[in-house]
């Protein structure tokens, strides 16, 4: 069997099973949808919950992105270290070292402490 076909078949099976759960729930569940207020431990909402959420760790997301870009190069790098030799390791860890300096700076500035 072609690998691609096998993976698509498995995804299809997963989709079918999930659909079956919803279908079964439709058949066996008590009919009608109960409209509810969001659970606020017995309280009534004063406004919609959807809002511009104060993401206090936004500074971390920036540092994260710097590393995440880096990771894309690290997967192929892992394959060629043995053939490229010392230079590959030196270059990669110099780059990682620079990024880590950034992390150190961000840490000193309190980017990882937001509470």
């Amino acid at each position: 069997m072609e690998t691609f076909v096998a993976v698509v078949a498995l995804a299809g099976l997963g989709g079918a099973l999930i659909t079956a759960v919803y279908a079964l729930s439709f058949l066996t569940g008590v009919r009608g949808t109960l409209g509810v207020a969001p659970f606020l431990s017995g309280g009534v909402p004063r406004e919609h919950a959807l809002s511009r959420f104060h993401v206090r760790w936004y500074a971390v997301t920036m540092v994260f992105l710097a590393f995440d870009m880096e990771m894309i190069f690290m997967y192929p790098w892992a394959l060629v270290v043995a053939s490229m030799g010392t230079m590959a390791v030196v270059e990669m860890f110099l780059f990682l070292g620079l990024l880590l300096l950034g992390v150190l700076y961000a840490w000193r500035e309190g980017a990882f402490r937001w509470a």
Binding site: V30, R31, G32, T33, L34, G35, V36, A37, V44, P45
Partner: peptide
Amino acid sequence: AVTGSWRP
């Protein structure tokens, strides 16, 4: 069983 939607 109760059905229908919730209103503020």
